[in-house]
Design a protein around this nucleic acid. Sequence first.
DNA 1: CTCTGTGCAAAGCGTTTGCAAACGA
DNA 2: TCGTTTGCAAACGCTTTGCACAGAG
Lengths: 137, 137
Amino acid sequence: MDFEISLKEKNLKVTPQRMAILREIHKNGHITVDDIYENIRIDYPSISLATVYKNIAALYEVNILREIKAPAQKQRYELSYDHHLHVACERCGKLEDIRVDVSDISQQCSKMTGYILHDASAVFIGVCPECAAKNKK
Amino acid sequence: MDFEISLKEKNLKVTPQRMAILREIHKNGHITVDDIYENIRIDYPSISLATVYKNIAALYEVNILREIKAPAQKQRYELSYDHHLHVACERCGKLEDIRVDVSDISQQCSKMTGYILHDASAVFIGVCPECAAKNKK
DNA sequence: CTCTGTGCAAAGCGTTTGCAAACGA
DNA sequence: TCGTTTGCAAACGCTTTGCACAGAG
């Protein structure tokens, strides 16, 4: 995964801030804006939160990033080249990736609606094994 | 669909504001907080936005409502008794319901992760037929 | 050299909260 | 009557914006 090439393809300049953001997202999979900022700040203290927001907007715009919106959770971002679904635990808020093929359903939807679909944002909601074990009331 | 019974079951009082909110959501399927407020205000001018928010939170809490979070869209709410997926048009922002069975995938996810899943928030993203016809560049 | 990106502070917007009065059961 | 709900205004937190300067190409 060469971020510099992706950026140049989209006419976005390669800046240290931008690279740090991409590296951070790559490292974490799905991450909130705030966590990106806090993590980068450790070895790049001068970065500003506005810069993180502006970059995320720019990267989202050109489809390098994808948003994940799960009910009752902060917005998260991930690299969009890697398609997968998510499960969220409604007790502890954990979010995990799952590798499941949705192309069948996507095609079915496409046929039913006439839409040209190119992405899916799916989050299954439930209780994770740990919380189920702990908190069974 | 008798809202009064649902409310009483959850120990929520039946108030005119609450009923108006439920009726509005029922009428629209999926709707934003702001639209609920604006629509109710027409024949109930004294209602406050805070009341709408408080009620939505209360109704969400007891699972009468479900949130829909689609990328790049305002949060919407719908009645949760009616399970279905959504397709969103990224050009015009339209959101439509689709009646598709996801229980297979849900079970698959459940097996893979050990989660006990009880809901899915899935939004497929693409371009609707109208926008595709208009805007093909 | 030019245009994009950065950092700061202020503004914006959707949402939440505290409180006193009104209301449902 | 008692606990819940309402409406108002203020507070809040996340996100965006304007602007001058710095940096990439």
